[in-house]
Structures are given as C-alpha cells and as structure tokens.
Amino acid sequence: MTQRKRTKLVWAAWFLAVLHLVILLAGFFAPYSYDTQDREHPYAAPMRVHLVDAAGRWHFRPFVYGLKAREGSLTAYEEDRTQMFPVNLFVAGEPYTVLGRFHFQTHLFGVQSKAGVEAPARIYLLGADGFGRDQFSRILYGGQVSLFAGILAAALSAIGGLFLGMVAGMFGRPLDDVIMRVGEIFIALPWLYLLISVRAFLPLQMSSTATFALVVGVIGIVGWGRPARLVRNVVLSARERNFVLAARGFGAGKFYLMRRHILPATMSVILPQMALLVPLFMMAEVTLSFLGLGVGEPFPSWGNMLASAQQFHVISSYWWMLLPGLAPAPVFLACHALADSWQEKLKSAV
C-alpha cells in the first residue's frame, strides 16, 4: 500500500468519525431545534456572518445583522444594518436531548436578542424553509435519519448477507441454490423499483420511529444479495484452500474452520463492502423520504427536506432549499475513499 493511500484511509476515517459525532450531537451543534418555527421569516436567505460593519469598523467578535422585509415582498429580506447580533459560543438556548437520555441547554453557537430590541435575533447560516425553520439545524438533525438509516441498513444487510452467504457456502446444495437464486433476483432488479414495491405493501402512515425502523428494514432486506454473494464466493474459495484442507486433515470440525479460517477471510470482503453500502443505502432512504414513502414531517430527513424543492417557485427563488441534496455528497466521497483504500490495505495484508 502506498503512502498516499494510507493517508487517504486515515483522512476518510477521521472525517467520517467527526461527521458522525457532529450528527449524533446535533442538538449541541445546531442553534435551534428541527421544529422551531419563525413565522416572521419564512424562506430567509442564508445570512452572512460579518467581521466588518457597515461603517467599515472591524469587530473582534463575528456578528450578523437582523432581517427586515424588503419593501413589497413577504419572503424577501434584506439586512437591517441597525441591528447587530454578535455570534456567541456556548449560548444557552432551547433544551435538547442527546442520545435520548441526556438533557442540555447549551448550544455551540447562537445569537441572543438584546433587551429592548423588538426583533428577535435569529441566525440562519444556510437559510430557512417555508416555516422559518433553520436549514442548518434541520440538516444536522436530518443526518440522524439519513446517515444512521444508511449505517443500520448496511449493518443489517451485511449481517444477513454474512449469515446467508456462509450457510450457502458451507452447506452447499440445495440450500446454496435456493439462497443464491433468490439473491440474484434481488441484485438484478432495479433497486428503486424493488425498494418501492416492498415499501408499497407496508403501512404508509406510522409514527416516525416506526417508519424509520421500517425503512431501515426494507432497505436491509432489499440489499442483502450483494454481500451474500461476495461472502459465499469467499467461503467457497476458502474451503478449497489448501490450508483449510490441511486443518481438516488435523481433524478440525466445521465450526473451527468457520471461526479460525473462513470468517476472518470474509471480513476482508464484508467490511469494505459495508463502506460502499452505507452511502448507497443512505441514498435509498433519502429517495424514499423524498417520494413521501419514508420518514415524514415534522422530523427532517435529507430526503423529505428536498421534497419542497419540487415546487417550481421554491426551487427558482430559494436555492438554499437544494442544500439538503448536497449533504450526502461528502459522506459518499469519504465512504468511497475509505472502501477503496481499505480494500487495498486488506489486499496487501494477505
């Protein structure tokens, strides 16, 4: 493995770790909750964070201006240069919950209204949607759905694929034939059609948690074919390897062979495969939610946040409504870089 690949692996792994941490602690990093509305400022544009004020003075602390409606328009704003709100770190704001248990109130950053100023201070780094909800906060919270749906579904299908592939490889016909033929169908079909049709036969209206579980389940079920086929091929080739034959010659049983020789061999396939499946399944969740078949309002997912961009007036006037569609890209790139260099590493380790 070249040095370049090694640095790539490290960078991709670090990026993903940090990203997941941020998404997991979305409450802390987001200035607002995902459902905090600001009826005064629907479709507020992304704000500029200033260091220099209108008079040309430098400020040590970055600040934003307040918003005021542009004349003759309800949803276009301009900066109200008379109101300056400094951006503070570790501000107390709306209470939030981390990991479903721990309650906090401190946010990483935020702006606070000054006493005596009538307009409430708001900071919209990435703009606001039609209800005046902060896009930045919603993208972070939406990651909790999209990103973790991808990871959980990938884990689910990898475990399922590992199990079925092992069984198919170790026990041979006729089990092998049945598993692999069914898996082939799952691999060959257009995944979106398959996903939608499996989803079609399940209840449409449910609580967001139940829908989330359902979406993960559906994606996992649809996706087991590829890992199962990979695992089976590894098992089959490992079974014929001379070192497995030799171990059989020493009297090793099936269980020993699986544990010591075959399972470790499958790991070099299944782990990079998972790194590829995560972004794929993340996109599956985004697509389902976009089509209204996944997690629904008010809880955000990168998919259902994009849905409003289908309206022509929204997409043509408020470009920041497209930003949730950009969110998967860095995850995708990092996962691919990870899988790529990981594969290389495992290959060179053999």
């Binding site: 961009a309 022509f312 043509s316 497209l322 691919h336």
Partner: peptide, 28 residues
C-alpha cells in the same frame, strides 16, 4: 466520476429543473 457518483440523482434532476426555470431555454 467521483463527483458525479457523489451527487445524488435527485439533486441532479432538481438542478435540471432549476436550469430550465432560470434559462427559459428548456421546458420545465
């Protein structure tokens, strides 16, 4: 190709609509 892969198809389709809306050269 990495960029094109990373770009969700959804976003591409929406961007195409945006182009149509902005340029008026293509039907929406």
């Amino acid at each position: 190709t990495s960029l094109a892969l990373a770009m969700p198809d959804l976003l591409l389709a929406l961007l195409a609509i945006l182009i149509a809306l902005r340029t008026h050269r293509y039907p929406v």
